[in-house]
Design a binder for these strands. Structure first.
Lengths: 291, 291
DNA sequence: ACTATATCGTGTATGATATACACAGTTCTC
DNA sequence: GAGAACTGTGTATATCATACACGATATAGT
């Protein structure tokens, strides 16, 4: 359902806009380098789409554009997410999008937040902080893995939208079931958040591979080959020993050749780490109780 | 010291290369989306620059190109890192770089690994795993903060080079001072690694701001404003309460207005989390000892 | 109703960017 | 000493984000 409203004019024109312009940083680069102030980006992310009464009704809503962008990133990858692709998917011209977002960066900021979705629902009877944090962590990891392209964007420089805050709120709720003082809760939050986002990289990489039709065996081979270069390299004696002697390899499900114990699945490794982190927090809570 | 070796030809040519080509994905996008197999990228990253005896001596070494790239990213940011910029910095044409790296992605892969540098030196008398892991964690965080642009690249999809392996080796060495079975060491490594890389985001963001001449107060204001939207928003009751009642705000050094206890510095928060993680690991080690 | 005006989607143009290709100069190998 | 292999260069092209102005549209104020 292509939309054609604009008028047709004869091709030959005499416009001569030789005005000097600022540079147009290309695509993802501009996103990556956070061209605008974070402040301005944040405003754009939060401000509602206000509609003036004059003029034709907009044919789209921002959400529509955002959804199209997400669909593209989901279906292909971040590189496929061009302004043209988004517009085409909606049946509009590229430039039409600029009526909704001032630039690609703003669109992506919105898409990222929307793509995060809402955090998991809270279990009806409280389960205790540990179980609830666990649920949160799994959910967050699953969310990241289900949209591997999110990890290709520099979260670092991105403004925080409503969903981002919701995820944090949900984690705070989980932690709320403790005796932590409010000002300490953010610290605990940041441990958990840090661990979860930091340690999901490999799983995300696998998820992306799977999404692109690469088998987990192929993927494991690729990553394994990478690590495998350490073997017999005198610079990496310990790593080398681990990789050869035992089951140190990264494994997706059915793993690399292993001799020693059974190698851990990615998920198992994540679990292991999470439990260590939770233990550490537990210990801290216990020490507070003693006071 | 520009270099001009190539010949001059009259501008009018009769080449007609209308051959069909593959798409030329633009800049960072291609990096982000990991166009090539990880396998191929990994090979490129590790393969030595082999020099055939014929022909003119290359005027550069890969390291030179990589260094120029790093200098640009350090001095400006990732967006400024264009093939043209790198070449210009070396006094060559853009295309000259392609004699050293088949594409930008390969150059960046190399630059990333080189930029990581070597892990910290190992303390002469062993300090015990906990202290050594701490040292490693601080060093890694410091490294990331000193080159904020590293965090703008999707590590997820990147191949692992020599320095990456060295950092891992160093951490394994630190952990080596325990009774962990080899096959469990990777799990412990991944907890620490996950926490450190995941929880450095905010500090990296601050580091980047500082590098761009933004004061830490300005930065804190920007990030704070972001969080501040939660205040009085019914969707975020807990967050809101924390932010208003106490010192939950993110602070660089001299922080946001705080009423309750003193707000944590970013570094203090990192420390706190790290100690929790280390506690958790400690606990695990103790439990192993018992067996 | 009528007109001014703000807004919409469009067509076109531009500058940045990565990179393909062919050439001319350079330096070994045979 | 000739040819082969490689070097840096110049030029061309596709892809992108995005500026700008136009004609169409719909509301506000008269």
């Amino acid at each position: 359902m292509a939309r054609q409203t604009g008028g047709k004019r004869p091709p030959g024109r005499t416009t001569k806009p030789t005005r000097k312009r600022e540079a147009h940083p290309p695509a993802v680069a501009s996103v990556a380098s956070a061209g605008q102030d974070l402040t301005k980006r944040s405003e754009l992310l939060w401000e509602a789409q206000l509609r003036s009464s004059r003029g034709p009704k907009p044919a789209l809503r921002r959400e529509d554009v955002v959804q199209a962008a997400i669909d593209i990133a989901d279906g292909e990858d971040l590189a496929a997410l061009t302004m043209h692709a988004v517009a085409a998917k909606l049946g509009f011209t590229t430039m039409a999008l600029y009526r909704y977002f001032p630039n690609k960066e703003a669109l992506i900021d919105s898409a990222v937040d929307a793509a995060m979705g809402a955090p998991p629902h809270r279990p009806e009877p409280r389960q205790g902080w540990r179980e609830e944090v666990r649920r949160w962590a799994y959910a967050k990891r699953a969310m990241l893995c289900s949209r591997p392209w999110l990890a290709e964007l520099p979260f670092v420089a991105a403004p925080h939208g409503p969903n981002w805050l919701s995820w944090h709120e949900a984690l705070l709720w989980a932690i709320g079931d403790t005796r932590l003082r409010p000002e300490d809760m953010m610290d605990v939050l940041s441990v958990i958040h840090g661990y979860v986002s930091g340690s999901s990289d490999t799983a995300i990489s696998l998820a992306r591979a799977l999404a692109r039709g690469i088998s987990s065996e192929q993927w494991a081979r690729a990553v394994g080959a990478d690590l495998g270069r350490a073997i017999n390299d005198p610079r990496y004696p310990i790593l080398s020993a681990i990789l050869t002697s035992a089951s140190g390899g990264i494994s997706s499900t059915a793993p690399l050749p292993a001799r020693g114990g059974r190698p851990r699945t990615l998920d198992e490794s994540f679990d292991f780490g999470l439990e260590r982190v939770l233990d550490g927090i537990q210990l801290h809570l216990d020490s507070l109780k003693g006071l």
